[in-house]
Write a protein that binds this DNA or RNA. Structure first.
Length: 483
RNA sequence: GGCCCGUUCGUCUAGCGGUUUAGGACACCGCCCUCUCAAGGCGGAGAUCACGGGUUCGAAUCCCGUACGGGCUACCA
């Protein structure tokens, strides 16, 4: 049997971290089992669903490196892949359930229902709706229906069935008393399906074999199993993922900082790193390995190694991981990754990068080990693009130190004479401290500040090589003239 | 209120009855490397496995209860 899984976001907002992790697990599970990964848009909430959100979700998924075999932009023979376009499937399913007595019309008003709810809650009863309309005589039902009286369609929970149990792939055996399951609404008075109905109809029609989704649906599962059964369809395997929390142990939300995938992209995170981090937030390869590539994930992912407890999102570990991925990139890939950030900062243009590609690749070793996010790059390499303005602090600290100006003058003289490669530059500058009688640090920091404008910079000798002799001497002269 | 789920270092986790003085990673501390900052190497501190009962020769691992946290209980998803 071919594994068929789906990620079914409702386009009521951006793709957030929790949704992304669910998508990743579904995708990895499908790939690992040579199955089919389906993207379905659950847009049954007309109030909050928008095409913009759908587009944004798709963009985020693609950015993360996920691909789907069926769904928007991919096609497939189980479509359409938007719930709002599958109305006839829900109608057909409801007809089937009416015919078999698994669904019945309910004419209760919203006020009546609210009153009943309050009552059942105070009496400690377990089921929500009291099933008043389920007991209506057939002729009365027929009369009110033909009179056009507003009504919803409810599931007739088979009380005689006994407890609804299932073996969750993550949580194990789980069982719900049949009395605790409500005769919930399948189809609203306006004819549209509710989530618990539409999802089952679609999962059945799309022949979904494994439903991997958020923990918030665990209690919905017995309801959905009842619908699968009423429809005469095989129930899929369920796997419920626990939530992702913020540092305070509360559901991740804006209060904890960025929650959308695109926000992380915009903060300079690599998709590979976010994918890796999210994958490990609730799943482990072996308990030892922390760097897990997409390839490893899609060849090793298993439901058994998903953890049951909620995970707290740790931005610091994500940042560390992003740095690890950044360090692992080739110079060429790094240039591609940082290009938008350099352009955005106004340091260069796309044309310039294309024209001087080797030079741009030569600056990569200067910064690759020093950044954890792409948004840190521009500030670190800015000195390569424009002469720095020396801050008062840096000047006082490095240029006005004892012996600094003499060292700087000496450095200028030796640099003028040398071939401008890092090794030669180092050899030349290493003679300065002794010649002038200062500590190496004093001499090097003076040059660093004169050339980069800061007491903190990439390695000095390599930086000078990349900068070039002309700019280096010009900056040293400028600094000397200020002393 | 009812039903259901969860609980191992600050955080993510390994562990699936004895191999455990509970392992790894992030963060933290120290040392080394060193032209600054990083990166890297080495070492350290950090978990009475929520608590209380059982079962067993033996429990973080199995069972029950309690506490705490969470989910569902909508004509939201």
């Amino acid at each position: 049997m071919t594994v068929r899984v789906r990620f079914a976001p409702s386009p009521t907002g951006t793709l957030h971290l929790g949704g992304a992790r669910t998508a990743i697990y579904n995708w990895a599970f499908a790939r690992r089992n040579h199955g089919v990964f389906i993207l379905r848009i659950d847009d049954t909430d007309p109030e909050r669903s928008t095409p913009e959100n759908t587009a944004q979700i798709i963009r985020s998924l693609r950015w993360l490196g996920l691909d789907w075999d069926e769904g928007p932009e991919a096609g497939g023979n189980h479509g359409p892949y938007f719930q709002t376009q599958r109305a006839r499937n829900y109608t057909a399913a409801l007809e089937r359930m009416k015919a078999t007595g698994h669904a019945y019309p309910c004419f209760c008003s919203a006020d009546e229902l609210a009153a009943k709810r309050d009552l059942t809650r105070t009496t400690g009863a377990t089921s929500g709706y009291d099933r008043t309309c389920r007991a209506l005589p057939a002729d009365e039902v027929a009369r009110r229906l033909s009179a056009g009286e507003p009504h919803v369609w409810r599931l007739a929970v088979p009380l005689e069935r006994g407890p609804v149990g299932f073996s969750d792939a993550v949580r194990g055996e789980t069982e719900f008393p049949i009395e605790s399951i409500d005769d919930f609404v399948l189809v609203r008075s306006d004819g549209t399906p509710t989530y618990n109905f539409a999802t089952v109809v679609d999962d059945a029609d799309m022949e979904i074999t494994h439903v991997i989704r958020g923990d918030d649906h665990l209690a919905n599962t017995p309801k959905q199993i009842l619908v699968f059964e009423a429809l005469g369809r095989k129930t899929p395997v369920f796997a419920h993922l626990s939530m992702i929390w913020g540092a305070d142990g509360k559901k991740l939300s804006k209060r904890h900082g960025a929650t959308s995938v695109e926000a992380y992209r915009d903060m300079g995170y690599l998709p590979e790193a976010l994918l890796n981090y999210l994958a490990l937030l609730g799943w482990s390869l072996d308990g030892e390995t922390t760097i897990v590539s997409a390839d490893v994930l899609t060849s090793s992912f298993s439901l058994e190694r998903i953890s049951k407890n909620p995970a707290i999102f740790d931005p610091e570990k994500l940042e560390w991981m992003n740095g690890a991925y950044l360090r692992g990139m080739t110079a060429s890939a790094f240039v591609d990754a940082m290009a938008p950030w350099l352009i955005e900062a106004g340091l260069t243009t796309g044309e310039d990068i294309d024209a001087r590609r080797p030079w741009f690749e030569s600056i990569v070793p200067l910064i690759q080990e020093r950044v954890r996010r792409l948004d840190e790059v521009a500030e670190k390499v800015a000195f390569l693009f424009a002469d720095p303005v020396l801050s008062a602090e840096a000047t006082d600290k490095a240029l006005r130190a004892d012996g600094a100006s003499a060292a700087l003058r000496a450095a200028r003289d030796v640099l003028d004479e040398v071939d401008f490669d890092a090794a030669s530059i180092e050899e030349a500058l290493r003679t300065v401290p002794e010649a002038v009688g200062v500590k190496p640090k004093t001499a090097f920091q003076a040059v660093r500040v004169a050339v980069t404008g800061s007491t903190v910079s990439p390695p000095l000798f390599e930086s000078l090589e990349v900068l070039g002799k002309e700019a280096t001497l010009r900056r040293i002269d400028a600094a000397l003239s200020q002393l």
